[in-house]
Design a protein around this nucleic acid. Sequence first.
DNA 1: TACTGAATTAGTACTTGGTACTAACACGTG
DNA 2: CACGTGTTAGTACCAAGTACTAATTCAGTA
Lengths: 186, 186
Amino acid sequence: MRLSKRERQKKLQLALEHEPFLTDEEMARRYGVSIQTIRLDRMELGIPELRGRIKHMAEKNFDHVRSLYPEEVIGQVTELKLDHSAVSELEIREEHVFARHQIARGHHLFAQANSLAVAVVDAELVLTATASIRFVRPVKLGEKCVAKAKVTQVSPSRTQVDVQTYVMDETVFQGIFDVYRSKEDQ
Amino acid sequence: MRLSKRERQKKLQLALEHEPFLTDEEMARRYGVSIQTIRLDRMELGIPELRGRIKHMAEKNFDHVRSLYPEEVIGQVTELKLDHSAVSELEIREEHVFARHQIARGHHLFAQANSLAVAVVDAELVLTATASIRFVRPVKLGEKCVAKAKVTQVSPSRTQVDVQTYVMDETVFQGIFDVYRSKEDQ
DNA sequence: TACTGAATTAGTACTTGGTACTAACACGTG
DNA sequence: CACGTGTTAGTACCAAGTACTAATTCAGTA
């Protein structure tokens, strides 16, 4: 057996997200299995056929052109005191969650916190150096995450920022960010 | 004659711009002509068939939407051994960097590593619990980040995954992920 | 009115990328 | 040995076409 069934299916799923234009034939060739096996895999994974996938993509972008474009800060900044504190809000939408169980992917919470930590520091060049983070509880579709950043330490080239993210008054995420700052301190 | 040939062709062309998902059959029905007439019209106007049109639309928007859309794994998975190791590649593009100095935002590197750490674990429900990360050196526009994940510890409900990300053979990011895993391990 | 050329329709064979289904085989394990 | 899982093979069928040939219709004119 070249690959276990689970591995093949996982790879298949991932490959299709990246290259949705693959035919069953091409996938069968890639994994060295028969076309029927690929079809069975798609069935089990609930992946529609090539034309369905293509059509879905085309439709999706045709009528509602989503503009979730590279934002400077992930989420909406509601408070900002440079080198002191900041707050941002992020509502968890479809594009943030795992389709299966509607739980937000960790890196979106991280992105909200990280970009806020970077934004609160007043310098030309600000980069995250290290971070220690904790996902306290899963966040679900529709919940609003309020991230609160506080600057806790400042040294010549580093700033430490603590971020706590809440849903209502429950903590869902904690992070300590050690942020590098260029000397042209503005 | 219901409509002159010229009129029909003009209408057809305009209709397709607005509703590119029409089949020849549907158009034939609408204009009260045979399917062959519609096909001849498309030939003369140089309009490709339905599938070609759909595919073209999907392709056009694919590159654009790709980086913004919920991918299971950020970057392209090149190796995957479930519960053992995995590798993914991510090329740093415009949308990943700070416009000012062309340095990648930390959360994209995090996202690549985090999603890989989650993907390598073989379970129904996998969530990041905690992580300790370090951005070793800034990554610039155009660089290709290769993230290598290794499972280092497995306990009943947790898996520890270490991720190192390289540009060429230089480490740019390190992360230790403690990942929660649901018991329905199969 | 008959004729002609353009326009239209009809019909066949073939293609792609599948679905849906049935049957057979391979093999690892109790 | 039988059993189940996984895999492969093969058939009939489908949508939405292409490519091609042939027949029919129609409009305007000699």
